Computed example of a mutant assay.
Amino acid sequence: MTEPSLPPYTMEDLGTEARREAPAATRNVGHIVKVLERWLPDGGLVLETSSGTGQHARAFAEHFPQLDWQPSDMDPAALASIAAWREGGPDNLLPPVEIDTGMADWPVGEADAMLSINMAHIAPWGATLGLLDGAARLLAPGAPLIFYGPWLAEDVETAPSNLAFDESLRGRDRAWGLRKVETLAVAAGKRGLELAERVAMPANNFMLRLIRRA
């Protein structure tokens, strides 16, 4: 796998324009789509949490016209950028909604799939636990919660670049840092979710598919 560059971590790193662009999102969207083609349902609503700039939401809505795509974020700058990317986009790309995954009160009551891209390592662990809680509330049995990002795994040697990335994240905020797949799986199991599949991705990232158990 290629060594990853260290991308910006927050919306503030991406300038001040309403419609912001993250180089990492431009690079990885095609790779993510190939896995989503296997993992997403044939129809229904996909809730994307921590949608960031909105680039992914726009691309995914265009690629999956049979799905309603619900972007969300808790950052006002991100919500503005998502709205800007939505302009002129497909009808199945819904207006962004504000969701703090660490809180229990979400404006979405159910979803056929959920997606989280590059959130777990740039948020307190409680935000990921809240996302698992939300998936347990919103998803029907068998429906997926999908993660993409840099994760640590006990059976995979951590790339030096990821170790450096982890150190840089923790230097920026002590609540940030790369998480272990095994820790996520244990927390998910306590909430009725099961880690069903892990796919290695370019730049030492993983995609993880969790499913809601019956």
Rank of each mutant, 00 (worst) to 15 (best):
T2Q: 06
T2K: 04
P4N: 03
D13M: 12
D13P: 11
A18H: 15
T26L: 08
N28Y: 06
V35K: 06
E37T: 09
W39G: 08
G54Q: 13
H56E: 10
A59S: 13
F60H: 08
A61V: 07
P65N: 08
D73H: 06
D75L: 13
D75F: 10
A77K: 13
A80Q: 15
S81D: 13
A83N: 07
A84M: 14
N92G: 12
P95E: 11
V97A: 05
I99M: 05
I99A: 06
I99G: 08
V108R: 13
E110C: 11
S116Y: 01
I117P: 02
I117T: 06
M119F: 04
A123W: 01
P124Y: 01
W125T: 06
G126Y: 00
G126V: 02
T128W: 00
G130F: 04
G134T: 01
P141M: 14
I146E: 00
Y148K: 00
L152Q: 15
A153H: 02
E154V: 11
D155H: 07
D155T: 05
V156W: 10
T158F: 11
S161I: 05
L163T: 13
F165E: 15
L169R: 05
W176F: 07
L178D: 00
K180I: 01
E182H: 06
G189W: 10
K190P: 00
G192L: 05
L193Q: 01
L195Q: 00
L195R: 00
V199S: 10
V199H: 09
P202S: 12
P202K: 15
N205W: 12
R209C: 06
R209M: 08
A214F: 12
